[in-house]
Design a protein around this nucleic acid. Sequence first.
RNA 1: GCGCCCGUAGCUCAGCUGGAUAGAGCAACGGACUUCUAAUCCGUAGGUCGCACGUUCGAAUCGUGCCGGGCGUACCA
Length: 569
Amino acid sequence: MLSENLYGDRKNTKDMKEKIRQIMLYAAEKAHNTEQLPSGDFPDFVIEEPKNPIHGDLSCNLAMLMAKMQKMAPRKIAQILLDHTDDAEGIIEKKEIAGPGFINFFIRPAAWLPVLRRIHAQGDDYGRSDMGKGEKVQVEFVSANPTGPLHVGHGRGAAVGDTVANILSFCGYDVQREYYINDSGRQIRTLGTSVFIRYQQLCGKDIPLGGDCYQGDYIRDIADMIRNEKGDRLLSGDAEEAVVLCARFAADFILSGIREDLESFGVRFDRWYSEQSLFDAGKVEQVMENFRKTGNLYEKEGALWFRTSDYGDEKDRVVVRSNGQTTYFASDIAYHQDKYERGLERVVDVWGADHHGYIPRMRASVMASGRKSEQFQVILIQLVSLLRDGEPVAMSSRAGEFVTLKEVVDEVGKDAARFIFLTRHYESRLDFDLALAKKKSNDNPVYYVQYVHARISSIMEKARERGIAPEDWQEEYLSALTEAEEIRLMKALSLYPETLETAAAMMEPHRLSYYLTDLASLFHSYYNKHKVLTDLPETTAARLCLIMAVREVIRNALSLLGVSAPEKM
RNA sequence: GCGCCCGUAGCUCAGCUGGAUAGAGCAACGGACUUCUAAUCCGUAGGUCGCACGUUCGAAUCGUGCCGGGCGUACCA
């Protein structure tokens, strides 16, 4: 039987760990007040799920951590703490002291039931939190140069950046997604040159394509488009103008392709920020002028240097070369200044790991304008190796033989691609096997998780067919949930909010993928052992309530990962 | 040389702001479909957590030093 306070208390929304933590804190204070514990100074302690179920549902290490400052044996402190616990809600079935001084709690099975009520009440919002307190955070990701199509590596960055943004947003941060377009500088000029040479070749001229030019077939395709539009006219005009025209045309065309590819990968940006616009608005010049005034810049050997070494970089860096051209760093400084001036409190850049050497100088420039180091964070994405059946797929962008993100998404699907990118810590290198990604088996966790959603949807459909309507599912029936697998599922469901908060705090989306796989595994086991639609109406109602909660959380988490939750598979 | 990342089961990887007997999937072997979807489940087997010291009640986790792999060390982007 369920007690009234477990069941009827509307404020009963704190998760189990937090409840135990409060009980322990209260016990510690009480023990100090009665002078059984000399010190009133309590260290940070953890409430965690022991790996071994023999140690209970939750475990607390407070007694061991206090041993030194209390000048007492951990087990003795544990006993004192236990003597002072006050379990007003009646959630604890058994508590014990174990090992060097752990305090283990065995939770009364029925005490997990409120999580179901909470999930049903909050629906899509279960797990949402205000931990971010509205902090304005920008996630800048992908930001690939518009000189060629996105490849798989960009895909990983896109999946991670997008999902980090989703998670932060769900956890109460005010998130903005931005793509920085490097549409200025030498590479764009090289792009123009490459296209113009192809154009001239198409017009019958025998001009070789230099080794430093972009070699991909798409360059010729673009040149062909220009020829269809302009005919041979560019041949007779000014060559410089022709290159500029080719560059602009090509960059615009490639960028719109990038947009489309990202769109079909489920990624959208709040803003596409052009590097060229920084120059056009005079912001690069302005920012350099400001830093000159504050003494952060100096001239040496004809070039202009930024004193990044004042802020931890190993040496100073050039912002204007002796030939008068600004470096990429210069516009990047201006760009980041602009971000903060727009009111962003924290800036997160998602970069390829090969750019890690760039972090100290970027951070230095941010700190030079008085921002705190923590206001600039970088997520470094490690390399993706593309395989097919374990064999490496050739990926030389120099020769233009790369496999594009679009090709991968077309072949394996958005869901599988995203999930695989998000099932590994981004700081680990990733082998992406195309054959594996298409396999509809356990090799491929995305189907494993989606299958849960489909299975539950199917059961719900069956329930409807049998005339079991959702509104008939009474909470009073929940006490029928007593199977070990049912308790395990409820425990897992109650872990979701803190999983999200950790994922947000550490900006590690893979935590969500692993959580999903765990939850899915628990469900599949349950499904194989117990029938949901039974002859007992109360049991059926209770189990439906449970699996609907599972479905809700699966759907919720998948949507944060940008993966669909199919009703049928 | 210096800096950063990685090193955990045969393979691919979780676990790393310290917690008790180190986990998952794949691959291997043996089982479960007349059932709400077998894209599933159950079981067996599989480990000096790269090595060595150190910190402490306790180390895969923290520190130092090695070893191995990758990346970076431009008046490139």
